[in-house]
Amino acid sequence: MQNNFEENSAVASRAAVASTAVANTFGIALSVRNVHKHYGEREVLKGIDLDIAPGEFVAIVGRSGCGKSTLLRLVAGLEAGQDGELHYDGHAQDSRHDTRIMFQDSRLLPWKRVVDNVALGLPPHEHINAEHVLGQVGLRERRHEWPARLSGGQRQRVALARALVHKPRLLLLDEPLGALDALTRIEMHALIESLWREHGFTALLVTHDVSEAIALADRVVLIDEGRITLDLRVDLPRPRHRGHAAFAALEERVLRRVLQQPPNDTNPDKEHTGDVSLHRTVDQVRWAV
């Protein structure tokens, strides 16, 4: 009774976990066991169970205020005080050293040049890697610029480079593309996907953009009111094309599930204005995202 998982998905995902685990030994295996989190009286997470295989790319979707960012921050070790257990490769202690997080705003230090931002927290003898990773995100030429002179998309690419230069085994993405325009977002999807395949880290992406989740993730997990209500495998070949019928069908399926849930009435003032679109028909929403 602790979980109201969807149909066959739980079984399917466990099987898939086993199959990807053989292929990848670099990424962290993450397991979340019956995690609860309260803020005062309010229970934000009501018993989350989630297994992520090494190297797997998992996207968490849900309405704003559903608890998805809280889960990510718990995994990152940025918040504490939860009940339940988090295991990284089977160990209980949080592995900050192997984990890097990318935030919605780039959080670059404005007083450091691009290359020094990327090198933040690196031991001196590894500073040379900063330039290399900047090359991977296509910003090697801009390495001596101030962050203020970059566009929003470029800043997020710098933030991505800053995360990757530490060779994380678990990369957490907290709506990193939420503030970008649609075209830049699609470019970033391709970049993130190629770097994920190259580096082999485990990725956990929080997003409210269902199409983004399906474009990138091996699995899409839907959280509603603090519970996982859908855990869906995305078996489309990569790179994925939004135009395909299978893509559209999956996207519609997830969106329908999101829309089935009544809006979170307990906290209406926390809803973004963007969520108004969720009250429209599925087709309109698909066009919008």
Binding site: R96, R107, L109, W111, L120, G121, R162, H166
Partner: peptide, 27 residues
């Protein structure tokens, strides 16, 4: 505080946090 949180999660602490984040931010 978002910058401080970021720096800490990137393994920057103590004197280096002061030198790279807090002091330049206050300058």
């Amino acid at each position: 505080p978002a910058l401080i949180e970021m720096a800490k999660s990137y393994g920057v602490s103590g004197w280096r946090l002061y030198r790279d984040v807090i002091f330049p931010g206050a300058l």
